[in-house]
Design a protein around this nucleic acid. Structure first.
Lengths: 165, 165
DNA sequence: TTTTATTTTCAGTAATTATTGAAAGTTTAG
DNA sequence: CTAAACTTTCAATAATTACTGAAAATAAAA
């Protein structure tokens, strides 16, 4: 299989986006490839197109499945596993928001909660406690918005936008 | 100068958060340090507390200033430069949203626009074009929300939340 | 101006993160 | 069951990213 310049550019752009936001480049690139692929792809297919190793492919496909962005497809008459990506941008965004919240936000919020418990309320910790409290308040609000986003349908977003006008 | 365990933990947590989201760990840690510091700090002060080199300190303080998260303070009777961070979590969030949008979102959106222009509208590029169009539509909407967020005051957020109930 | 204090830069190096590939594990067909 | 097809794991290695420290540049004081 061979990609056109445009397809390669899309994959490259998506990979860079991933890298900039702390996502493995290969994971983002496989995602991009699946996003523009009409049919499910096998590990071999991805390896060939992206010029990456079997191990790399396997690990990052697994990550995509764990993130709920791709899923295994059975193709009758073939023993290989095939994978395809969810294509609805709304579903994708929700899925990513949900996962990043769980992985890269919740642990921080919990650590700050812990921290607050064990911090004496003295002069030396005045600034720290103010900051932690502010961050907690803020994150509760953002979190509640994110939660609504994650559980929403596309409609929700339009409604919010309209109300903001 | 010496930090308590709690202060160190805060700095560590903030550094990890940065790393997970594609921000230099030291940059995030200096930010955290300034956030919980009552008075402006000199380069020496930060170097000592965080145990990092002059060069590293200098580069990351500059980055914080460029991001609009910290600013130089003149302290009379001292030739050194001192720095302090903005402490309002709302201002911080807006500043970060604005900067990340400019640095890590706009270039992607522009690349996709370019890509769309140069992609032939044929069978081979059907999926690609659908995806790019979807992403563009989506990002316009998110962008408009982000813009409102960036230009908003805290009040805006509460209003939105209330309307969502 | 010269000297001293301070900041900036950046080539070299260290630390971290990502990738490979072959061996071990698993599944399916015969 | 055995063999072949395929997938997974992970130690070794490569690639990337971050950090250091000393030299160069700049700014302030004498």
């Amino acid at each position: 299989m061979n990609l056109t310049d445009q397809q390669q550019k899309f994959i490259h752009t998506w990979g860079t986006l991933g890298t900039n936001w702390g996502i493995n480049k290969t994971m983002a690139q496989i995602h991009a490839l699946l996003l523009i692929s009409e049919k499910p792809l096998s590990t071999e297919g991805m390896m060939e197109v992206l010029q990456i190793s079997r191990g790399n492919t396997n690990m990052n496909v697994r990550a995509l499945v764990e993130w709920g962005l791709a899923s295994k497809e059975m193709i009758s008459g073939d023993r290989k596993d095939f994978y395809s990506a969810k294509k609805d941008i709304w579903v994708i965004a929700r899925q990513i928001a949900q996962q990043r919240r769980k992985r890269e936000l919740e642990p921080v919020i919990n650590a700050l909660k812990e921290l607050k418990k064990e911090t004496p309320n003295d002069e030396q910790h005045k600034e720290l406690l103010e900051r932690v409290n502010d961050i907690e308040d803020f994150s509760i609000k953002v979190d509640s918005m994110l939660e609504k986003f994650v559980k929403s349908d596309e409609n929700w977003f339009y409604k919010v936008l309209l109300k903001l006008v």
